[in-house]
């Protein structure tokens, strides 16, 4: 799965730590999502979408699988 999390975060000038704090996860989790090493659960994806005020499909999109 691909995502635009890094772009959205950088648009708001947030560090990974800032975003992690708002989502109540670790900075490592944010880094893993941004680098495509980890796909978040549906509840976390919804929290991300709510935080950025965008639909989930605008942030996450299917990969090549």
């Amino acid at each position: 799965m691909n995502n635009h999390l890094r772009r959205l975060r950088e648009q708001r000038a947030w560090s990974q730590g800032d975003l992690a704090e708002q989502l109540e996860v670790s900075r490592q989790t944010i880094n893993a999502i941004e680098t495509g090493k980890y796909d978040p659960s549906l509840p976390l994806a919804f929290r991300i979408a709510k935080l950025f005020r965008q639909p989930i499909e605008a942030i996450f999109e299917p990969g090549k699988e």
């Binding site: 996860v25 670790s26 989790t29």
Partner: peptide, 8 residues
């Protein structure tokens, strides 16, 4: 108390 990735 870990998040979902840490629990994994």
């Amino acid at each position: 108390r870990s998040d979902e990735l840490q629990q994994r």
